[in-house]
């Protein structure tokens, strides 16, 4: 297992948001986390990415316990998440949004980066090439010089994805990658996700759009009221009566 979260518990003032939830992600798989609003999906997601601390339970990533590791260190180890509402760096150009993301930049060190400028420039050149490749893959290359805040909602979603890819993540976590995106762009994103999965990356997707999830995922976890209701292959989960009653019926 690339990542395992075991017996995760989390409460906010009085309400138990997660009740002893365990999930495991196989390397190279696309796993989907579904459930109605308020089921605790985003909380579990944030506990895995390190933005929220679990009350108890543990998170293990490629053989190492990371339960208490801060988010930025997890990102450096290859767990990279995107946000449901795009968190673009608005004033920066699209290209700069990607360049910021590149890891371990000499030019970001202080004060070393101020004098080892040649090395920094060389690294910047390599990073720019990588960024061009990703922008081209996602069809954003033409708008690389515009400020990120001027992009459409769909383009911002793609930018989120592009920025995450700059880190060459081993585990890519996507929070509702299709939310607020026009259907055509959604199709595009789905295709990209399948491509990314085919490159051997592990994906964890929180998504509302069930039909889409069922198409791309190899494994599905259903979370209802903070409890794991079911898990399995998409086709099995779809047939599960409890899931249909608790989630599909309502949705």
């Amino acid at each position: 297992m690339l990542l395992e979260a075991r017996d995760i518990e989390k409460s906010y003032v009085g309400s138990r948001v997660l009740k002893s939830v365990s999930v495991a992600l196989k390397p190279g798989s696309i796993t989907a986390l579904i459930g109605p609003n308020g089921a605790g999906k985003t909380t579990l997601f944030d506990i895995i990415s390190g933005f929220v601390q679990a009350d108890s339970g543990m998170v293990r990533y490629s053989g190492e316990e990371i339960t208490r590791k801060p988010a930025f260190l997890r990102a450096r180890r290859g767990i990279v998440k995107t946000f449901q509402i795009p968190h673009e760096f608005g004033g920066l150009s699209v290209l700069d949004n990607l360049l910021v993301a590149s890891s371990d930049q000499i030019g970001e060190r202080f004060p070393v980066g101020l004098w080892s400028r040649r090395a920094a420039r060389e690294q910047e050149r390599v990073n720019t090439e990588t960024a061009y490749g990703i922008l081209e893959f996602l069809g954003l290359l033409a708008s690389r010089e515009v400020k990120a805040e001027t992009l459409s909602a769909g383009e911002k979603k793609l930018l989120e994805l592009a920025r995450a890819l700059m880190l060459a993540p081993r585990l890519l976590m996507l929070d509702e990658p299709l939310a607020g995106v026009p259907v055509s762009v959604g199709e595009q994103i789905l295709e990209h996700l399948v491509d990314i999965g085919a490159q051997g990356k592990t994906l964890l997707i929180v998504e509302h759009n069930l039909e889409a999830v069922m198409r791309v995922a190899d494994w599905v976890y259903v979370l209802v009221d903070g409890e794991l209701l079911a898990s399995g292959r998409p086709s099995d989960v779809q047939c599960n009566e409890r899931v249909q009653a608790a989630y599909l019926g309502k949705a």
């Binding site: 801060p70 990102a75 990279v80």
Partner: peptide
């Protein structure tokens, strides 16, 4: 511009 996004990028 966005601190948590920067954190998510390591």
């Amino acid at each position: 511009a966005n601190e948590s996004a920067a954190q998510a990028l390591g």
